[in-house]
Computed example of a mutant assay.
Amino acid sequence: MTIPRVVSVSSDDEHRFTKPRREAITLVAGLGVEGDAHFGATVQHLSRVRRDPTQPNLRQVHLMHRELFDEVDADVSPGELGENITTEGIDLLALTRGTLLRLGADAVVEVTGLRNPCLQIDRFESGLLKQVVGTDSEGRTVRKAGVMGVVLAGGVVKPGDLVVAEIPAGVVEPLAPV
Protein backbone atom coordinates (compact mmCIF):
# COMPACT_ATOMS: atom_id res chain seq x y z
CA MET A 1 0.00 0.00 0.00
CA THR A 2 1.27 3.46 -0.94
CA ILE A 3 1.73 5.96 1.88
CA PRO A 4 -0.46 9.01 1.10
CA ARG A 5 1.78 11.78 -0.17
CA VAL A 6 2.03 14.82 -2.40
CA VAL A 7 3.39 13.92 -5.85
CA SER A 8 3.43 17.39 -7.40
CA VAL A 9 2.39 21.00 -6.75
CA SER A 10 1.30 23.58 -9.33
CA SER A 11 0.11 27.16 -9.53
CA ASP A 12 -0.50 29.85 -12.12
CA ASP A 13 -1.10 33.57 -11.65
CA GLU A 14 -3.30 33.64 -14.78
CA HIS A 15 -6.60 31.89 -15.52
CA ARG A 16 -5.28 29.11 -17.75
CA PHE A 17 -6.38 25.48 -17.74
CA THR A 18 -2.97 23.90 -17.17
CA LYS A 19 -0.87 25.04 -14.20
CA PRO A 20 2.94 24.85 -14.32
CA ARG A 21 4.61 22.61 -11.76
CA ARG A 22 6.52 24.25 -8.93
CA GLU A 23 9.15 23.11 -6.44
CA ALA A 24 6.79 24.22 -3.66
CA ILE A 25 3.62 26.24 -3.14
CA THR A 26 2.57 28.30 -0.14
CA LEU A 27 -0.95 27.92 1.20
CA VAL A 28 -2.41 30.94 3.00
CA ALA A 29 -5.25 30.48 5.51
CA GLY A 30 -8.60 31.68 4.16
CA LEU A 31 -7.18 32.57 0.75
CA GLY A 32 -5.64 29.58 -1.01
CA VAL A 33 -2.45 29.14 -3.02
CA GLU A 34 -0.26 32.24 -2.93
CA GLY A 35 0.29 33.58 -6.44
CA ASP A 36 -2.48 31.47 -8.00
CA ALA A 37 -5.29 33.02 -10.05
CA HIS A 38 -7.86 31.44 -7.69
CA PHE A 39 -6.32 33.07 -4.58
CA GLY A 40 -8.92 34.94 -2.54
CA ALA A 41 -11.62 34.77 0.12
CA THR A 42 -14.37 35.24 -2.48
CA VAL A 43 -14.88 33.31 -5.74
CA GLN A 44 -12.16 33.72 -8.33
CA HIS A 45 -13.42 31.29 -10.98
CA LEU A 46 -14.34 33.65 -13.84
CA SER A 47 -17.84 32.29 -14.55
CA ARG A 48 -18.71 32.38 -10.84
CA VAL A 49 -17.39 35.94 -10.47
CA ARG A 50 -19.76 37.01 -13.27
CA ARG A 51 -22.72 35.44 -11.41
CA ASP A 52 -21.96 36.69 -7.90
CA PRO A 53 -18.49 37.99 -6.95
CA THR A 54 -19.39 38.04 -3.24
CA GLN A 55 -19.74 34.24 -2.90
CA PRO A 56 -17.22 32.61 -0.57
CA ASN A 57 -14.36 30.87 -2.36
CA LEU A 58 -14.89 27.16 -1.65
CA ARG A 59 -12.42 26.33 -4.44
CA GLN A 60 -9.20 27.82 -3.04
CA VAL A 61 -7.22 24.61 -3.61
CA HIS A 62 -7.80 21.88 -6.20
CA LEU A 63 -6.44 18.43 -5.30
CA MET A 64 -6.35 15.51 -7.71
CA HIS A 65 -5.26 11.89 -7.24
CA ARG A 66 -2.43 10.77 -9.53
CA GLU A 67 -4.15 7.41 -9.92
CA LEU A 68 -6.71 9.12 -12.20
CA PHE A 69 -3.98 9.50 -14.82
CA ASP A 70 -3.73 5.68 -14.98
CA GLU A 71 -7.51 5.37 -15.50
CA VAL A 72 -7.93 7.72 -18.44
CA ASP A 73 -6.98 7.11 -22.04
CA ALA A 74 -4.89 10.27 -22.34
CA ASP A 75 -1.31 11.37 -21.78
CA VAL A 76 -1.76 13.46 -18.61
CA SER A 77 0.83 14.76 -16.14
CA PRO A 78 0.46 16.58 -12.80
CA GLY A 79 -0.82 20.14 -13.15
CA GLU A 80 -2.12 19.68 -16.69
CA LEU A 81 -5.74 19.34 -15.58
CA GLY A 82 -5.56 22.51 -13.48
CA GLU A 83 -4.93 21.01 -10.06
CA ASN A 84 -2.74 22.67 -7.45
CA ILE A 85 -1.82 19.50 -5.57
CA THR A 86 -1.47 16.04 -7.05
CA THR A 87 -1.64 13.27 -4.45
CA GLU A 88 -0.98 9.56 -4.41
CA GLY A 89 -2.16 6.81 -2.09
CA ILE A 90 -5.33 8.52 -0.84
CA ASP A 91 -8.81 8.09 -2.29
CA LEU A 92 -9.77 11.77 -2.41
CA LEU A 93 -13.15 11.01 -4.00
CA ALA A 94 -14.18 8.81 -1.06
CA LEU A 95 -13.65 11.58 1.51
CA THR A 96 -16.55 13.38 3.13
CA ARG A 97 -17.25 17.09 3.21
CA GLY A 98 -15.32 18.65 6.07
CA THR A 99 -12.43 16.18 5.97
CA LEU A 100 -9.19 17.87 7.02
CA LEU A 101 -6.12 17.15 4.93
CA ARG A 102 -2.83 17.80 6.69
CA LEU A 103 -0.20 18.48 4.06
CA GLY A 104 3.43 18.56 5.10
CA ALA A 105 4.44 20.11 8.40
CA ASP A 106 1.86 22.90 8.76
CA ALA A 107 -0.78 23.21 6.04
CA VAL A 108 -4.38 22.11 6.60
CA VAL A 109 -7.03 22.08 3.86
CA GLU A 110 -10.71 21.42 4.55
CA VAL A 111 -12.40 19.48 1.74
CA THR A 112 -15.47 21.40 0.51
CA GLY A 113 -16.60 19.27 -2.43
CA LEU A 114 -15.96 17.79 -5.83
CA ARG A 115 -14.53 19.57 -8.83
CA ASN A 116 -17.13 19.87 -11.55
CA PRO A 117 -15.07 19.85 -14.76
CA CYS A 118 -16.29 21.78 -17.77
CA LEU A 119 -15.75 21.57 -21.51
CA GLN A 120 -12.25 23.06 -21.17
CA ILE A 121 -11.08 19.57 -20.28
CA ASP A 122 -12.01 18.42 -23.82
CA ARG A 123 -9.93 21.26 -25.25
CA PHE A 124 -6.97 19.75 -23.43
CA GLU A 125 -7.75 16.24 -24.79
CA SER A 126 -10.81 15.43 -26.87
CA GLY A 127 -13.09 12.95 -25.11
CA LEU A 128 -11.49 13.40 -21.68
CA LEU A 129 -14.60 14.96 -20.12
CA LYS A 130 -16.55 11.71 -20.67
CA GLN A 131 -13.75 9.83 -18.93
CA VAL A 132 -13.78 11.99 -15.80
CA VAL A 133 -17.55 12.55 -15.59
CA GLY A 134 -19.84 9.59 -16.13
CA THR A 135 -22.71 7.68 -14.58
CA ASP A 136 -22.82 4.68 -12.31
CA SER A 137 -25.05 1.60 -12.70
CA GLU A 138 -27.94 3.48 -11.06
CA GLY A 139 -27.67 6.49 -13.38
CA ARG A 140 -26.07 8.84 -10.82
CA THR A 141 -23.39 11.24 -12.01
CA VAL A 142 -19.87 10.28 -11.00
CA ARG A 143 -17.19 12.99 -10.97
CA LYS A 144 -13.55 11.88 -10.87
CA ALA A 145 -11.64 15.15 -11.47
CA GLY A 146 -10.56 15.69 -7.87
CA VAL A 147 -11.73 17.67 -4.88
CA MET A 148 -11.75 21.30 -3.85
CA GLY A 149 -10.92 22.80 -0.49
CA VAL A 150 -10.27 25.85 1.61
CA VAL A 151 -7.09 26.56 3.54
CA LEU A 152 -7.53 26.48 7.32
CA ALA A 153 -3.83 26.64 8.21
CA GLY A 154 -1.13 27.93 5.92
CA GLY A 155 2.22 26.43 5.12
CA VAL A 156 4.59 25.33 2.40
CA VAL A 157 3.62 22.19 0.47
CA LYS A 158 6.06 20.31 -1.75
CA PRO A 159 6.39 16.95 -3.49
CA GLY A 160 7.10 14.15 -1.03
CA ASP A 161 5.10 15.72 1.80
CA LEU A 162 2.82 13.32 3.64
CA VAL A 163 -0.96 13.64 3.40
CA VAL A 164 -2.97 12.79 6.53
CA ALA A 165 -6.77 12.76 6.34
CA GLU A 166 -8.90 13.45 9.41
CA ILE A 167 -12.50 12.41 8.75
CA PRO A 168 -15.02 14.50 10.72
CA ALA A 169 -16.92 12.77 13.50
CA GLY A 170 -20.69 12.64 13.46
CA VAL A 171 -22.94 12.96 10.44
CA VAL A 172 -21.19 12.02 7.21
CA GLU A 173 -21.84 14.48 4.42
CA PRO A 174 -20.95 13.04 1.00
CA LEU A 175 -19.07 15.21 -1.45
CA ALA A 176 -21.08 17.24 -3.96
CA PRO A 177 -19.86 19.61 -6.68
CA VAL A 178 -18.76 23.08 -5.55
Rank of each mutant, 00 (worst) to 15 (best):
V6F: 10
V7H: 00
S8F: 05
S8V: 03
S10M: 03
S10P: 01
S11R: 08
D13T: 08
E14M: 08
E14P: 00
H15E: 12
R16C: 06
R16D: 08
T18G: 11
T18Q: 11
K19S: 04
K19H: 07
R22C: 15
E23M: 12
E23L: 13
A24R: 10
A24I: 03
T26S: 14
V28D: 11
V28L: 11
A29I: 04
A29N: 04
G30V: 06
G30T: 04
G30M: 09
L31N: 09
G32V: 05
G32R: 00
G32A: 11
V33C: 08
E34I: 00
E34Q: 06
G35N: 05
G35F: 05
D36G: 02
D36W: 05
A37Y: 06
H38C: 07
F39A: 08
F39H: 08
F39K: 01
G40I: 00
G40R: 03
A41C: 04
T42M: 06
Q44L: 11
Q44K: 14
Q44R: 15
S47W: 14
S47A: 15
S47T: 13
V49W: 12
V49R: 14
R50W: 15
R51V: 15
D52N: 15
D52L: 03
D52Y: 09
P53M: 11
T54Y: 13
T54G: 06
T54K: 13
Q55Y: 08
Q55I: 01
Q55C: 06
N57M: 07
L58K: 12
L58A: 13
R59Q: 09
R59C: 01
Q60N: 11
V61L: 05
V61H: 03
H62P: 02
H62I: 08
L63A: 06
M64C: 11
M64N: 08
H65W: 12
H65T: 11
R66E: 15
R66G: 13
R66M: 12
E67I: 09
L68R: 07
L68G: 12
F69A: 09
D70S: 15
D70E: 15
E71F: 15
E71T: 14
E71M: 15
E71V: 14
V72I: 14
D73F: 14
D75C: 09
V76I: 15
P78D: 07
P78H: 01
P78N: 04
E80R: 09
L81C: 04
L81T: 02
G82C: 02
G82I: 03
G82E: 00
E83F: 00
N84H: 02
N84T: 01
N84D: 02
T87N: 08
T87C: 11
E88Y: 07
G89T: 07
I90F: 08
I90Y: 06
I90D: 06
L92S: 08
L95D: 05
T96M: 09
T96V: 15
R97E: 12
G98L: 10
L100K: 02
L100R: 06
L101Q: 01
G104T: 02
D106R: 05
A107N: 09
V108L: 13
V108W: 05
E110V: 08
E110W: 03
V111T: 09
V111D: 04
V111S: 06
T112W: 01
T112F: 02
G113F: 05
L114V: 03
R115C: 14
R115G: 03
